[in-house]
Amino acid sequence: RELEKFANEFKVRRIKLGYTQTNVGEALAAVHGSEFSQTTICRFENLQLSFKNACKLKAILSKWLEEAE
């Protein structure tokens, strides 16, 4: 439930900031050390990743959002 809420909020905030899914994937290299594909970001936003992978990505995306805003 919390993950679903974060995924929805993330998408809204990403769009408000003017980032595409591809931009986010590339920008994550600075935060995490490796890029993520547009497909991975899309699957996260649509809750199509495994729970374990989504939880890992949530932590990375939270950190990125803090820096982007």
Results as ranks from 00 to 15, higher is better:
C55Q: 15
Q21E: 06
Q21S: 07
S50W: 12
A68C: 03
E67W: 10
I41H: 06
L61P: 04
S34Q: 14
F6A: 04
L17S: 03
K52M: 07
K11S: 05
T20F: 02
F36Y: 13
S62G: 10
V31H: 06
S34I: 11
S50Q: 06
V12C: 11
Y19W: 09
K52D: 14
W64V: 00
L49W: 00
N8Y: 12
E45A: 08
K11W: 01
T20W: 00
A68V: 12
E4W: 08
L61E: 05
K63W: 05
F44P: 00
A27R: 07
V12H: 14
A68Q: 12
C42Q: 15
G25F: 09
F51S: 11
T39K: 14
N8C: 07
E66A: 13
G25D: 05
F6C: 00
Y19G: 07
N23Q: 15
A29H: 12
L57N: 04
S37P: 06
V31G: 08
Q21N: 03
N8H: 14
I41P: 01
G18F: 04
E69F: 05
S50F: 04
T40Q: 10
I41Y: 00
E2D: 12
F51K: 12
L3V: 07
E66W: 06
G25P: 03
L3C: 00
A54R: 00
S34F: 08
K16M: 08
L65M: 08
A59H: 13
A27Y: 11
I41D: 03
N53T: 15
L49N: 02
F6E: 03
A27P: 01
V24Y: 03
A7T: 08
L17Y: 02
L47R: 12
W64C: 11
Q21A: 11
S34V: 12
G25V: 14
E69R: 04
L65D: 02
L49G: 05
A30E: 12
G33E: 02
L17E: 09
V12N: 15
L57V: 14
L65F: 01
A54H: 09
E26M: 07
A29G: 08
G25I: 11
L17P: 02
A54Q: 07
S34E: 14
I15W: 01
R14H: 10
R14D: 04
T39C: 00
E67R: 11
G25Q: 11
S62C: 09
R1W: 12
A27Q: 14
L3A: 12
T22Q: 15
G25S: 15
I60K: 10
R14T: 01
S37W: 01
V12Q: 15
E66R: 10
E35N: 11
V12T: 14
R1V: 07
G33L: 00
Q21H: 11
F6Y: 02
R43K: 14
N46Y: 04
F44M: 01
K52A: 13
E45L: 01
A54F: 12
E35A: 12
G25E: 07
A27M: 15
V24C: 09
C42A: 15
A30D: 07
R43E: 15
K63H: 14
A7C: 10
E26D: 15
E69Y: 04
I15A: 11
C42L: 05
L47T: 04
K56F: 06
T40A: 10
Y19M: 15
K5V: 09
N46F: 02
F10Y: 06
E67S: 12
S37C: 09
L28W: 03
V31F: 09
C55W: 11
A29V: 01
S34K: 14
L61M: 07
E9C: 04
A54Y: 09
Q48R: 09
E2N: 06
S37D: 15
V24A: 04
F51Q: 13
F6T: 00
L28D: 11
G18L: 05
E66T: 12
F44E: 04
A30N: 10
Q48A: 05
E66G: 08
E35R: 10
I60R: 08
I15M: 14
G33W: 05
E2K: 07
G18E: 00
E69N: 02
Y19C: 06
E2V: 01
S62K: 09
A30Q: 11
N53E: 15
E2M: 03
K52H: 14
T22V: 09
I41V: 06
E45D: 00
S50M: 03
L65R: 03
R14K: 05
S37N: 14
A54W: 09
S50T: 10
A30I: 09
C55G: 08
L49D: 02
E9A: 11
E45C: 03
T40P: 00
A54G: 09
H32Y: 15
L65E: 03
W64L: 02
E67K: 11
K11A: 06
E4T: 10
K16F: 01
G33T: 01
R43H: 10
F36Q: 06
V31P: 01
N46V: 05
C42P: 03
E66V: 12
A27V: 05
L28N: 02
K56L: 07
E69S: 08
L3M: 07
E4I: 11
V24S: 04
L57E: 08
G25M: 07
S34Y: 08
I15N: 06
A30R: 14
I15Y: 03
Q48F: 01
K63Y: 06
K52Y: 14
K11C: 02
A29N: 05
K16S: 08
E45Q: 03
T40E: 10
F10W: 00
S50C: 07
A54V: 03
L17W: 05
L47N: 15
L65W: 04
